[in-house]
Amino acid sequence: MERYPVRMTDVLITIRPATIDDVPLIRQLIAELADYEKLAHAAVATDDDLRAQLFGAHPAAEVLIGEVDGEPAGFALFFHNFSTFLGKRGLYLEDLYVRPAFRGAGLGRHLMAALARIAVQRDCGRFEWSVLDWNQPAIDFYRRLGATGMDEWTVQRLEGAALHALAARDEL
């Protein structure tokens, strides 16, 4: 993956791939995002979890770190999915977060552009993500980038006891 340094007026924005040494930073940024989304109770990932899942033998996701003047200012965590209709993989953005002190400097736009470049370079058919319906500033930001809402779709989830109950059904 490439580095994407961009000079914005008085600040230098750098987008770089995360390394294993960034795990504590990634966990901290996840905690900050969870707090912003009023989901701090759900952010239970540990450094060991992230180290294994992001940098282990079979990484489940990738992370870009955004820096402003060398200071860690945000991140994007993404992975590939697959579209049976397109017959191509897609890029799915799980988390995008810019620390409040750095908002408005263009970091979010540069992270999204870096992800779009990755999607194009990897011949992805789509670049998708979800946004909380109450997060109007994020929705407005995504619309300015050209994203369209998939209003006819709703996210479904199985977790915890419901996930385990379904997995136990119809055992042989």
Score class of each variant (00 low, 15 high):
residue 2 E to P: 14
residue 9 T to R: 15
residue 10 D to H: 12
residue 11 V to F: 05
residue 12 L to P: 05
residue 14 T to Y: 09
residue 14 T to V: 11
residue 15 I to F: 04
residue 15 I to T: 07
residue 17 P to G: 10
residue 17 P to Q: 09
residue 21 D to N: 13
residue 26 I to G: 01
residue 26 I to A: 02
residue 29 L to F: 06
residue 30 I to K: 06
residue 31 A to L: 14
residue 31 A to Y: 13
residue 32 E to L: 15
residue 33 L to S: 00
residue 38 K to G: 10
residue 40 A to I: 12
residue 42 A to I: 08
residue 42 A to K: 15
residue 46 T to R: 04
residue 46 T to I: 09
residue 48 D to K: 14
residue 49 D to Y: 02
residue 49 D to S: 06
residue 50 L to V: 08
residue 51 R to W: 07
residue 52 A to V: 14
residue 55 F to A: 04
residue 60 A to W: 13
residue 62 E to C: 11
residue 70 G to W: 06
residue 71 E to F: 10
residue 71 E to D: 12
residue 75 F to Y: 09
residue 76 A to M: 11
residue 76 A to Q: 03
residue 83 S to H: 06
residue 83 S to F: 04
residue 84 T to K: 05
residue 87 G to A: 05
residue 87 G to V: 04
residue 87 G to F: 05
residue 95 D to N: 12
residue 95 D to M: 03
residue 98 V to W: 02
residue 98 V to P: 02
residue 99 R to P: 01
residue 101 A to D: 07
residue 102 F to S: 03
residue 104 G to L: 04
residue 104 G to R: 08
residue 105 A to S: 15
residue 108 G to H: 00
residue 109 R to A: 01
residue 111 L to P: 03
residue 111 L to C: 04
residue 112 M to R: 00
residue 112 M to T: 03
residue 115 L to N: 03
residue 116 A to L: 10
residue 118 I to N: 01
residue 120 V to W: 08
residue 120 V to S: 07
residue 124 C to R: 13
residue 124 C to D: 06
residue 129 W to F: 14
residue 136 Q to S: 14
residue 138 A to P: 05
residue 139 I to A: 05
residue 142 Y to P: 00
residue 143 R to A: 14
residue 149 G to Q: 11
residue 151 D to I: 09
residue 152 E to A: 15
residue 154 T to Y: 03
residue 155 V to K: 13
residue 155 V to Q: 10
residue 156 Q to K: 15
residue 159 E to C: 15
residue 164 H to V: 12
residue 168 A to L: 05
residue 171 E to K: 15
residue 171 E to S: 15
